[in-house]
Each structure stands twice: as C-alpha cells, then as structure tokens.
Amino acid sequence: MSDVPTNLSPNQRALRRFLKNRLAVLGLLMTACVVGAVFLWPLVVPDAHSEMQGWVHHPDAHSDEQFAAPTGGNLMGTDIHGRDLLSRVLSGTRISLIVGAIGALVSLVIGVSWGAIAGFKGGRTDAVMMRTVDVLYTLPSIIFVIVFMTTLDGFLPRFVKSGTINAEWVPFLKFAALFVGLGGISWLTMARIVRGHVLSLRSRPFIEASRALGISNLRILKRHILPNSLGLIIVYLTLTIPAIILYESFLSYLGLGIQPPQASLGTLIADGAMQINSIRIYWWLLTFPAGMLVTTLLALNFVGDGLRDAFDPKAEG
C-alpha cells in the first residue's frame, strides 16, 4: 500500500485501509441502518392496547387479522395471533443484537484478561492457562449453556417462592443468563489472540523501559499493553457479535433461549417454520425474519472481516 502516507499512526492507517474496503463500508452502513431502525422503533410505536391504525404497531398488540399477507397496514403481514410482523421482527432483532453485543462484551472481559495475564506472566502460569483453553476448545461448550439454563430454570421458581427475588425479575434474569452463558463460552479465541499479541509486545524495548523505571505490572498492562492491543481486540469483538447472535438464534429456535412473549429472530424463524405445510404457504412468516437475520449477520461479518484486513500487520508496508 504505497499510496498510504507513512506519517500516520498504525490505527489511523488501519482506518484508512478500512474506509477503502467497499464491502466493509457497505457492511458498516447496513449495520447502522439495522441498529438505527430497531432502536428508534420503540420511540414511535403506540400503546399495545390501542387500535391498529397506520403501519406502525406494537409488537404485542393482537388483532383479528390472523395470517394476513403483507399490505399497507401490515408491511410484513401478521402472525398466528394477528400481531404485526414488521414490529415483531424489529423488536426481535433488537433482542438478538443486545444479546450479541452484551455477550461479546462478557467474552471480551474474560478473554482479554485471560490472554493478557497468560501472555504477560509467561512461564508456568502461561502454560497452565493456555492448556486450559486448549482443553475447553475440545468440549461441547454450547451444551454447557443448555445445562446452565436448565439449572437456572429449576432454581428461579424456588427463589421466587422464598422471596429472595421478585417474580418480575425472572424473565430478565433468564435473559441475563443467556448472554452471560453465551459470552462465557465465546472467549477462547479472544484469549488466544490477545495472549499471542501480549507475548510479542512484552519483549519490546518500551515495555522493558517501563519495567526498568519500576512501573508496576498492572500499570504496564493498563497503560501500554492493552492500548496497543486495542485494534486487535476490536476486530475480534466485531467478529464475536455475529457468532453469538447465531448461537442465540439456534438456542431460541430450539425453545431453549428467549422465551415467549419475548421474541428474537430465532423464535420468529421457528414460528415461521412451524407454519410450513402443503396447503398454504405463509411465506412472509419465514422470509422476513430470516432475511433480517441474514442481513444482520452479513453486515456484521463484512465489518469484522474489513477490520481484520485493515489491522492485519501483513498489510503494512
């Protein structure tokens, strides 16, 4: 890349490379559109009990129009309870995005601390920690989330009965368990990448200089190692979000994730797939949630791949 000026910082150069990648910019725009639509939507929807007018409806508002094909009033048609599909798809996407984003943050916290400590301490600590990661890689991690959710399902009613927690918290706690669980199994790659990077940073002169100046390990990690790994961390964070959204949609599809009346893209697709029969095809029930999931995953993967290529050290020079 000879046309990239050399007087810029590595991060600025990476940003320029990213902006030159048309697919990545397209992905960024698509992501922005999806995020904007799903988070602005709640601001304009009417009350769940108000009359159905116009094309903006509440995701939980029922009507007598069951399985109505898309029209001007219901742009994506209605579902089995006569609920407006457009609004359900948007609120489902919102839940999927939230699970993906918070799950990715959970995996970020675990993965970065694990990798940074292993790489920075080195020696025996490093060996034990990375062997643990190797072993965890070979275990059926998603099944642990299923076991975890099952266990929680058993405990929550008891806590409610004994008054430890409020019954209204139950859906929220299950929701939280979902992204903690999914984040808890998605940090392995992040840990490996960060550890490799920290290992290479550790022997660089400026770190040795800080050490010679008597700066504490924690401070070196915070002030020098982590800021220098930021690009890499962001890359893998963006790639983790679609992965977690995918896991969440799988679990929800199977009935193990998001519980009704809440909807995510996975449960919406499962509802649509249930209505497949040879007499009539309610194509909108499947097409729109599936299309939304594919669009979201495509957009996030384009951004993630673009960032990875932009921050790739092999692209320098």
């Binding site: 679609p242 995918l246 949609s249 799988f250 599809y253 996975g266 697709i269 499962a270 649509g272 797939a273 497949i276 029969n277 040879s278 095809i281 194509w283 499947l286 599936a290 999931l293 594919v294 995953l297 495509l298 993967n301």
Partner: peptide
C-alpha cells in the same frame, strides 16, 4: 461462500423444505 456463512441452518432448512419438499 460468504453468503453460505451468513445463512445459518435454521434459515436454509425451512427454505429448502418449502421449495424442494412442499412446493
């Protein structure tokens, strides 16, 4: 290939069933 990566089984499956098995 990129399309295949972004279309998970839970989308491919119902679509294949609708087109090749039902229709």
């Amino acid at each position: 290939s990129i399309l295949a990566i972004c279309i998970p089984a839970l989308v491919v499956g119902p679509i294949l069933v609708t087109i090749f098995a039902v229709r």
